[in-house]
Nucleic acid binder design. Structure first.
Ligand SMILES: [Zn+2]
Ligand SMILES: [Zn+2]
Ligand SMILES: [Zn+2]
Ligand SMILES: [Zn+2]
Lengths: 152, 152
DNA sequence: TTTGAAATGTTATAACATAACAATTTCATG
DNA sequence: CATGAAATTGTTATGTTATAACATTTCAAA
């Protein structure tokens, strides 16, 4: 568990490697994502951004920053809930071949885990069977109930 | 490949078995879904519905019908594209344990296939490891390029 | 220091979805 | 058949998510 500033530094390094420019604004949005436990909507982020950084900010400001962060692999978009979160693997190697998001419908939390090799190869088998070519790492979202919520 | 009316009849049977009421309106929306090759947005469906069935229909009409059809397992919602399509397995047994949607980013088409046992069990392993309990069949959406588009 | 690409600011609007309440239909029961 | 509760549909309004379009500023390379 690295601290926030360490993570931001690491994120900046990743951007440089990938030819992305980590501006102040983008870093602020990433910091907002990192400072929250769970995933957030773009408009929730906008509200926080206005409160903490720039009172007159507009939606495009947030959406542009999020698009950039997603492109750089520093954040993810959850399409099943229209939410965004910081990648849970900014400070580790993150060289997996797909990501599995476990979305708890009870508490709203998300667990991000790399897709295990076995699952990847099974899915690849299915894709090959259909002649389907994947361009980006698949992001799979599964809804259910997390371990904490299952206890209660 | 069953005909449209056969499929609608089968859908009606499924509703009865499951305690759902297949009304005229709902059948009309399902017919629209079935008459199209690819997935469609709710507002595209609304436009067609207005044109073919009821000129003054409003969004809730379509969304309610879609909600019903999805509940009954006769249609699916693609959360990554905000689109809807008829289930490709209305006339077959459809007792699979999950569905994989292959979304072609080039032509916009979708291939719906049951998740193979191997993939299901690999995913279950990962879920178990996290103590995560799934409530409904997972619907997985993977983007890429379909076989037809790969040729061109 | 020019200069052009990238980023940001700003206004407006498009696209997706649901809340709330009224009216109607359905259907089991008396 | 009468009738009332539940489900469906009609209708208006609004909430939520996302982007188009164009002006302005920033920034790094030539
Ligand atoms: Zn990640
Ligand atoms: Zn939970
Ligand atoms: Zn299906
Ligand atoms: Zn295609």
């Amino acid at each position: 568990m690295s601290g926030l500033s360490q993570t931001l530094t690491r994120a900046e390094q990743r951007c440089q490697q990938q030819g992305g420019r980590m501006t102040t604004q983008r870093k602020q949005v990433l910091a907002l994502l990192l400072s929250q436990a769970g995933p957030q909507s773009a408009y929730q982020l906008l509200a926080q951004f206005k409160h903490q950084y720039q009172a007159n900010a507009q939606p495009p400001t947030i959406y542009r920053a999020l698009d950039f962060l997603v492109q750089q692999g520093l954040a993810h978009r959850l399409s099943s809930t229209n939410q965004y979160l910081a990648c849970g693997h900014i400070t580790c190697q993150h060289d997996h071949q797909g990501t599995l998001f476990l979305l708890c419908d009870t508490c709203g939390g998300v667990q991000e885990t790399p897709l295990l090799k076995g699952a990847v190869s099974q899915l690849q088998q299915q894709l090959g069977r259909e002649g389907f070519q994947v361009q980006h790492e698949p992001l799979l979202e599964i809804h259910g109930r997390c371990a904490s919520c299952a206890v209660a």
